[in-house]
Design a protein around this nucleic acid. Structure first.
Lengths: 102, 102
DNA sequence: TATGTCTTGACAAGATTTGTCAAAGGTAGC
DNA sequence: GCTACCTTTGACAAATCTTGTCAAGACATA
């Protein structure tokens, strides 16, 4: 909950939008927007799509940041974080190799 | 929710315990145990500690499997899974470099 | 002070997770 | 077939977490 926030705050600033204006454009409550930008709240998938749509940012870029934030939230303060990520990564790679999921 | 299940099912079989017996030993409901072993439910942290304690398995090993399962659950079926993991990994590495968190 | 912007916190509604239990499925022996 | 035993499944309420909404607070600056 930090990567995504940085991206959308930067975009809002680039567009010189006040939170109030961005809130109207995106149809997301201003308080929530403020929290998402600062990484205090995580966005919903629906909100990601709004950011992508209204801010015209590649959905893929947002998804990566969003997922990374969520992953970090889980492993972030565990000693085994890195090892766990490696295991998960292997799993993901395996899944994409064997075409029909697992 | 697969790695951890495999570990604890294997351990139970090694000990030749019935689900009912393992349930009593671990003080975890039998139905839940069955589901955790098959990856249908994810364990709570408290349960991880019970597994580690009663089954005498390194807590670290269980934590890695448990975290990896949770991470996989998040990114597993997203196209950007690998990239997101890479970003999260970088974040974790950075955090451990800069000693006082971020 | 007054005005405008952003942040914070409380709250309820909704969604998800958790544990408990009983019933259903499956298997092996009789 | 019928028993006896083990595992899996599903329904349920209680507890927990998430989400959106709103008003008040904090902060800057004219």
């Amino acid at each position: 909950m930090k990567k995504l926030g940085k991206i959308i705050r930067k975009e809002r600033e680039k567009r010189k939008l006040l939170l109030r204006q961005a809130s109207a454009l995106l149809e997301i409550d201003q308080a929530i927007l403020s929290k998402i930008e600062r990484g205090e709240r995580k966005a919903t998938k629906e909100q990601i799509l709004k950011f992508s749509d209204k801010y015209e940012i590649e959905e893929e870029e947002l998804m990566i940041a969003w997922l990374a934030d969520k992953v970090y939230q889980i492993v972030g303060d565990e000693k085994q974080a890195l090892k766990a990520l490696k295991v998960a990564e292997k799993e993901v790679k395996y899944k994409t190799t064997v075409k029909y999921g697992n």
